Simulated scan of single mutants.
Amino acid sequence: MKVLFMGDVVGRPGLQAVRALLPRLVSEHSVDLCVANAENSEGGAGISAESATFLLDSGVKLLTSGNHFYSKKAILPWVTAHPDLLLRPANYPKGTPGKGHGLVKLPDGRALGVINLEGRVFMRMEASPFEVVLPLVEELRKQTPCILVDMHCEASSEKNAMGVHLDGRVSAVVGTHTHVQTADERLLPGGTAFITDVGMCGPLDSVIGMKKETSLARFLGEKAPYEVAEKLVYLQGVVIDIDDTTGRARSIERVRHRLPGT
């Protein structure tokens, strides 16, 4: 099974990059299914029914999220109605709308389990993702050996620790949230594919997707509103090849393609 996982989709530019570039990537890499982190897809912070539907209509089979999961409150009724299409971090409090793990089935019967987690270092102190994840892995392994974990957090150390924690238990641990693609993709000793951060689908001529001028102004103490940038738009992510029988990853490859005209 070949899985394309795309990093945080940032605003309209990120949506356009996915819509325009996804067919080419699917063809070039013989991708079986696509997953994307959508937490910044509506205006750069949050998700809307419109942005989620746009990505699903573009060929993405499942959406993950993170700390901006409910920045746009209007997404809550939508995710309640579509819990199998958009995940929220599994270590959020009980009663939070949505689900933290799910299963994507292919027409030929193969399936990919996906778990969404949020870190705690420099972020909200939710339940420990290291404790929450293990029962979910065991639950999904009853249905498929192929499992991908989206570890959405700030600290590279926490992402790497999760990779070690789950090595040999899941097919892949991919980091999201920082919007900066790292060059440390590798197979861990137990057969788990890992990368600290897959990057973003959005404008690189920016400060992690936001206009440079307003971002800099905020660091200089001004109360400037964030605005999504528009230039040098890229789709970034990884293609992971997973053995359907064992669930071990065969390879992980970074992808990085520019949206023409940006």
Rank of each mutant, 00 (worst) to 15 (best):
D205I: 02
A193G: 05
T192D: 11
D241Q: 09
K211D: 11
V239K: 01
G202P: 06
T214I: 07
P225Q: 08
R124T: 13
V238R: 02
L112V: 07
M200S: 05
I147C: 01
V173D: 12
Q143G: 08
F122D: 06
A193E: 10
L204Q: 06
H152R: 03
N116F: 05
P135M: 03
D108Q: 11
S215G: 13
I115W: 02
H165P: 01
G119H: 04
A224Q: 09
V233S: 05
V174A: 04
V198A: 05
A111Q: 13
V132D: 02
A172K: 12
D197E: 11
K211S: 13
P135R: 02
L220C: 12
E118Y: 00
I195F: 02
L216G: 00
T214L: 10
F194S: 10
D167Q: 08
V170M: 06
L204C: 04
Q143N: 11
G202K: 01
Y226K: 14
D108A: 09
L140P: 01
V207H: 12
G191T: 03
E230R: 15
K231N: 14
G119E: 05
L204M: 14
D167N: 15
D241A: 15
L216A: 14
V133M: 07
V233C: 03
V170T: 04
E131W: 10
V174C: 07
L188R: 14
S157F: 10
A183L: 10
G191Y: 09
A111G: 05
S206G: 03
R186E: 14
